[in-house]
Simulated scan of single mutants.
Amino acid sequence: MARNPYYGGPTSDHFNGTRFFNPDGIEPLGFRELLRWNFGESRARWPKRLELAMPARPAQKVSGSDLRVTMIGHASMLIQVADLNILVDPVWSERASPLSFAGPKRVIEPGIEFDHLPPVDVVIVTHNHYDHLDLATLKRLCEAFNPLILTPLGNDTIIRLAAPDARIVPLDWGESWDVEGVTFTAEPCHHWSARGLRDRSMALWAAFVIETPAGRIYHIGDTGFHGGRNYRALAEKYGDFRLAILPIGAYEPRWFMEAQHQNPAEAVEGFRLINAAHAIGHHFGTFQLTNEPIGAPVDHLAEALLAAEIESTRFRPLGAGQMFDVPDR
């Protein structure tokens, strides 16, 4: 049996002693299917570069009942609530790749210039794929702000390769950590992990529920819809949410991506199931990871909202540099 270099804890209903898994879920497809996708499917042509209209200049703090989210790009965003500045899956690197000269390259600059970030209190890293866990950015953040990093089990080992003195709290599904009156809980999502060819699913992946005095936030970095199982379970556990932050991109072709990335119609169904007042769509428009055109996630989200008779203002796809002051529930 392969050795897990990241985590060595006890077995559970989602860890077999070596690898994590999705209970009653679908395993990611293998190398043969990857070759079939890459050599048997055509990808839409994305622009090489898009102009960022204007980088955002976030406030130093957001207090009281206010809740503000600023999109940096792809899955990276700044959540400001209850006097905390929370960065999620921060990636300022040019490529989402282990290589500096190859791999998915950003087509638009980060929506916030790094030097214009407010003091960062907490960083959430949802899983270890390169478009979510960027060691160069995490090292830079630790040097600039020394934030608390919350991440699922095993990812702390990876992060310490770049930031050995980082303040990191690894969390299993269902475990929580409090920061100044705000509670962060790692919760299940249907995904997988890998940094290379031999470490598949050896570090955990997670969604996060953030419970604040201004309301609950549900954030998923990546997920397959999984029949809505996780949405239903968390709606039963928590009741409702002021904001859900849901992935809407990187979903084609469906035969390959269905288990790991939901499409916009599934995101709208998840939004309905989780009892959220508002939602933000992310995971699109920055790195071309899959086959769909760059504008397809936004277009398909609009179609899905119309079909579900949900006002488009309630579920907003945020592009780089865009800011959303979330209405009070």
Score class of each variant (00 low, 15 high):
residue 13 D to Q: 07
residue 9 G to M: 04
residue 30 G to N: 14
residue 77 M to R: 11
residue 261 H to S: 15
residue 231 Y to N: 07
residue 79 I to F: 08
residue 272 R to I: 12
residue 174 G to D: 11
residue 220 I to Q: 10
residue 194 A to Q: 11
residue 212 T to M: 09
residue 169 V to I: 13
residue 77 M to G: 07
residue 315 F to K: 13
residue 255 W to V: 04
residue 287 F to T: 04
residue 128 N to P: 06
residue 318 L to E: 02
residue 110 P to M: 04
residue 302 A to C: 05
residue 163 A to H: 01
residue 187 E to Y: 08
residue 30 G to S: 10
residue 67 L to S: 08
residue 123 V to R: 08
residue 264 P to A: 05
residue 322 Q to S: 13
residue 119 P to S: 13
residue 158 I to W: 01
residue 104 P to L: 07
residue 328 D to I: 09
residue 147 P to C: 12
residue 269 E to P: 04
residue 38 N to S: 14
residue 304 A to T: 03
residue 278 H to W: 14
residue 165 D to K: 04
residue 133 L to D: 00
residue 20 F to P: 02
residue 308 A to P: 04
residue 258 E to A: 14
residue 180 E to V: 10
residue 241 F to P: 05
residue 262 Q to T: 09
residue 176 S to K: 03
residue 195 R to V: 15
residue 115 D to E: 14
residue 233 A to K: 13
residue 245 I to F: 01
residue 81 V to T: 13
residue 318 L to N: 03
residue 211 E to L: 06
residue 195 R to Q: 12
residue 194 A to H: 07
residue 314 R to I: 13
residue 40 G to C: 11
residue 316 R to F: 01
residue 86 I to G: 07
residue 219 H to D: 08
residue 321 G to Y: 04
residue 319 G to I: 07
residue 59 A to V: 11
residue 316 R to Y: 05
residue 319 G to D: 06
residue 52 L to M: 06
residue 269 E to C: 10
residue 302 A to W: 07
residue 316 R to D: 06
residue 201 S to A: 12
residue 113 E to C: 12
residue 47 P to L: 08
residue 315 F to S: 11
residue 202 M to T: 01
residue 274 I to V: 15
residue 136 A to P: 03
residue 6 Y to A: 01
residue 31 F to S: 14
residue 200 R to Y: 09
residue 47 P to W: 12
residue 10 P to T: 02
residue 205 W to F: 08
residue 24 D to E: 14
residue 92 W to R: 00
residue 56 A to E: 12
residue 135 L to T: 13
residue 201 S to H: 05
residue 25 G to R: 03
residue 273 L to E: 05
residue 6 Y to D: 00
residue 130 Y to H: 15
residue 92 W to Q: 00
residue 37 W to F: 15
residue 114 F to Y: 11
residue 160 R to H: 09
residue 161 L to Q: 14
residue 241 F to G: 02
residue 171 L to N: 00
residue 271 F to C: 09
residue 131 D to I: 06
residue 61 K to W: 13
residue 83 D to Q: 13
residue 237 K to V: 00
residue 251 Y to Q: 06
residue 313 T to I: 14
residue 285 G to F: 04
residue 292 E to S: 00
residue 303 E to D: 15
residue 43 R to L: 05
residue 187 E to I: 08
residue 174 G to S: 10
residue 12 S to D: 06
residue 182 V to R: 00
residue 54 M to C: 12
residue 250 A to I: 02
